[in-house]
Write a protein that binds this DNA or RNA. Structure first.
Length: 804
RNA sequence: GCCGCUGUGGCGGAAUUGGCAGACGCACUUGACUCAAAAUCAAGCGGGUAACACCGUGCCGGUUCGAGUCCGGCCAGCGGCACCA
């Protein structure tokens, strides 16, 4: 009688063994493989089964690569700056550094339950001064390159978190963190000129093996558009108004112009008659929040009383103000062609402005227009010298034609805005800048970094737009590093994204106190080959990291400019009915009990078995019984077979190669749920075979053990040892399938009449068409009772007899 | 509103280039073992029928010898963007 599967004893044993005998070692000869997890924020709540999913995915992939002969970079670290630690500090009066350290300790303990093959020597923590020294160093470099600059303007402000936010952090007009509606606040801000990289951030996407969805989200976020800036004279005045349009082909159809209420000329365009209404509109707009502006579908606006001159035909068109025009995109002014733009159409209808069609749809004007015709397809009409041209052609040529005539120029625009980079909070990296009354903004000298975050009495955000650091006089007051005059430190801190934008570089050289990363190690181990994490960072962390990487490439710190070659987004694990797991909902499933009762190996496999890894999955505890039973059955089969010592037969050899082939294929396709079902299926087949023979031959069982190892490392390592091996199962290489050995001599073929299966026949795999059809007809017998019009045989697939 | 993804048993989900729909697992039913239960093992498990037939992959249509898969048109759910001119 074989000993029962004791997961606790086995897992404890091998955990200890691997610690003493690591299996992932750099011998300098193996190629590297860098498989990275998105590092977690170590919250006080610990981890749940949802965290496990991503970490198990990356570990399975890593161990697979390890068995294929790579040296793994598979590190873990902590994204530990941020609001929760600070809020906790405020509530409990404990320094965030202390609560963070405690959370890290707890998180690490829980993550170790997964038995992932992390290299803890590479661990990083964004709040460690030796780490944020380099976060600050990058900022100083950006400042010196003119990429970090100060600006005062109305930014997104979260009144609940009491800090400014980047555009990327505003979701549906609300704070990404806490959900409070975001307001505008005029603040002096540090900005990063990410827009300078807009084109490269766009073109770089082409070569990346990323989900199309994420690439598209970044593409849309960057929002590149081609068009023209056109100058309109103002009737009776010397100034011009420049508008941006992507449809210069419709210029003859412009019947009015709209300026954003914040446009610099807005107020001055009012006439004595309109002044009151114009001033009121400008004031009202400035009071309205983002959410307000977004929820209002109905267009509002006010006529200024002034007119612009269409440069092509000298038509006088009224100038309006409306908040549907954004001040910070394009020129803050647009020409309006209601016949061919939805928004302009709506506005014209509401305010009774004429509509002139300039593109004939299907050769004629649309009668009684009820909506704008926005396609650029059709022939130009009412357009002077452009009449008769194809609008699609003109759309491309018009910018250059306008440029030649000196009426404007071709240009491109981006939706991407510069990155609001300062936060008015305590628990972040201090921005290493000194404000000197004589020299202006001076960076902290590089050799003085890190600029340490000082201790404060109160972490509470002030809400005034000042950081809590502003209250520490002895820290704020300093000398200018250039001229020595009395100066003041910048008191804003960096956003949480600062550290996460580059942390993956540091893992490969985390103890280097001379450089961010040494050239040698960067060349050897970077960039990241596989990055695994949730999709929620598609335009946040993933865009910022690409920007940082491109910048570091430009200053020669690294010699690649895309950080993550391949990206995989795992789906979320939710509670019942797809509800996100959260403490407040009370639906969080902790892995602790499951590991205790079923073992780490079972939970690892079940995490994969719940569904396709890229899709969300509802957690159901009961399903884990299935994988647990499978491991028990395989355990028993393996031990019984070891006793039985049966010789291999043809079926076993075939099964072994098919198994290796199937598992590898599915793994390569990242179809990990079907890898698990594949193991179960083949195990059932082996049990079936063993009924006749008393067991399965050694080589086949060993092949199964090796394939199973990345998924269930403990039981595999134990069985490998029980099968008499002294080296680790992870050093045995990945089993190769011999496709010749997989081939069946005889195959099952369905026989159909008119496409409906009526019989199944066993035939030699290389049967001829004639024989196959003959055998098929024979099997059908009396069911074949009509006139046969066609006989089809698709080799190894099907016989189909078509009858009338 | 625009863009993208997804619709398959009671449930989670399988199905290379179109080729036996429902693999694998959960739940359930029955049987064996047991004083009994749990565990384990065996059998069954889309609808329908006594058994066939027949009907079944969101809905309607098309292509094809043959459609879950391809094409056209709808419907529903999820996600992204949200006046970017």
């Amino acid at each position: 009688m074989a000993a029962p599967y004791n997961h606790r004893a086995i897992e404890t044993k091998w955990r200890k063994h691997w610690e003493e005998h690591p299996v992932n070692v750099d011998d300098g000869k193996k190629p590297k493989y860098y498989c990275l997890d998105m590092f977690p924020y170590p919250s006080g709540n610990g981890i749940h089964v949802g965290h496990w999913r991503g970490y198990v995915l990356s570990d399975v992939w890593s161990r697979y690569k390890l068995m294929q002969g790579y040296y793994l970079i598979h590190p873990m670290g902590w994204d530990a700056f941020g609001l929760p630690a600070e809020n906790y500090a405020i509530k409990m009066g404990i320094h965030p550094a202390i609560s963070t350290a405690e959370n890290v300790r707890h998180f690490k303990e829980q993550i170790n339950q997964i038995a992932a093959i992390y290299d803890w020597d590479r661990e990083v923590n964004t709040t460690d001064p030796e780490f944020y020294k380099w976060t600050q160093w990058i900022f100083v470099k950006m400042f010196k390159e003119g990429l970090a600059y100060e600006k005062e303007f109305p930014i997104n402000w979260c009144p609940s978190c009491k800090t400014g936010l980047a555009n990327e952090e505003v979701v549906n007009g609300c704070c990404e963190r806490c959900g409070a509606p975001v307001t505008k606040k005029n603040l002096r801000q540090w900005m990063l000129r990410i827009t300078k990289y807009a084109d490269r951030l766009l073109s770089g996407l082409d070569g990346l093996d990323w989900p199309e969805k994420v690439k598209k989200m970044q593409t849309d976020w960057i929002g590149k558009s081609y068009g023209a800036e056109v100058d309109f004279a103002i009737d009776g005045r010397d100034e011009k108004i420049t508008v941006y349009t992507t449809r210069p082909d419709t210029l003859y159809g412009a019947t009015f112009m709209v300026l954003a209420p914040e446009h610099e000329l807005a107020a001055s365009l009012a006439t004595p008659e309109t002044k009151e209404a114009v001033d009121k509109y400008i004031l009202d707009s400035s009071m309205r929040s983002n959410v307000d502006r977004m929820q209002d579908k109905e267009k509002t606006g006010v006529f200024t009383g002034s007119y612009a001159i269409n440069p092509l035909n000298n038509a006088k068109i009224p100038i309006w103000l409306s908040d549907y025009v954004l001040a910070d995109y394009g020129t803050g002014a647009i020409m309006c062609v209601p016949a061919h733009d939805d928004r302009d159409f709506e506005f014209a209808k509401k305010f009774n402005i004429p509509i002139i069609q300039v593109i004939a749809k299907d050769g004629k004007e649309i009668e009684n227009m009820t909506e704008a015709y926005t396609d650029a397809s059709g022939t130009m009409i009412n357009s002077g010298e452009w009449n008769g041209m194809e609008s699609a052609v003109l759309k491309k040529e018009a910018p250059h034609m306008i440029e030649k005539r000196g009426l404007g120029h071709a240009t491109v625009n981006y939706k991407l805005r510069d990155w609001v980079f300062s936060r008015q909070r305590y628990w972040g990296e201090p921005i290493p800048i000194i404000h000197c009354p004589h020299c202006g903004n001076v960076p902290v000298p590089e050799e003085e970094l890190p600029l340490r975050l000082p201790e404060v009495e109160s972490y509470e955000p002030t809400g005034t737009g000042e950081s809590p650091l502003a209250a520490i006089d002895e820290w704020v007051n300093c000398k200018c590093p250039v001229c020595g005059a009395d100066a003041k430190r910048e008191t804003n801190t960096m956003p949480q994204w600062a550290g996460s934008s580059w942390y993956f570089l540091r893992y490969v050289d985390n103890k280097n106190d001379k450089e961010l990363v040494s050239k040698e190690k960067a060349d050897k181990y970077l960039p990241v080959d596989m990055y695994i994490g949730g999709v929620e960072h598609a335009v946040l962390h993933l865009l910022y990291s690409r920007f940082y990487t491109k910048f570091l490439y430009d200053i020669g710190a690294i010699d690649f400019d895309e950080p993550f070659q391949k990206l995989f987004n795992q789906g979320m694990i939710t509670g019942k009915n797809g509800i996100k797991m959260s403490k407040s909902k009370g639906n969080v499933v902790s892995p602790d009990d499951l590991v205790r009762d079923y073992g780490c190996d079972s939970l690892r496999m079940y995490e994969l078995f719940v569904g396709p890894p890229e899709l969300d999955a509802e957690w159901d505890d009961r399903g884990i019984d299935g994988v647990y039973r499978f491991l028990n059955r395989f355990w028993k089969l393996a031990l019984d077979s070891r006793e039985a010592k049966v010789a291999e037969n043809k079926e076993m050899v075939k099964l072994r190669h098919k198994l290796a082939y199937d598992i590898t294929q599915r793994l390569e396709n990242f179809s990990l749920n079907t890898v698990i079902s594949g193991f179960m299926e083949y195990n059932n087949r082996m049990i079936e075979l063993a009924r006749k023979t008393g067991g399965i031959d050694q080589e086949t069982v060993e092949c199964f053990i090796r394939l199973l190892a990345p998924f269930a490392p403990h039981i595999s390592e134990e069985l490998w040892e029980l099968y008499g091996h002294s080296e680790s199962v992870f050093s045995t290489g990945w089993p190769q399938a011999d496709e010749e050995a997989m081939k069946d001599d005889e195959i099952e073929i369905p026989v159909q009449i008119n496409g409906k299966t009526k019989a199944v026949i066993m035939v030699p795999a290389d049967i001829s068409k004639e024989d196959a059809i003959a055998r098929g007809r024979e099997a059908l017998g009396g069911k074949l009772n009509g006139t046969v019009v066609k006989e089809i045989y698709v080799p190894k697939k099907i016989v189909n007899i078509v009858q009338k």
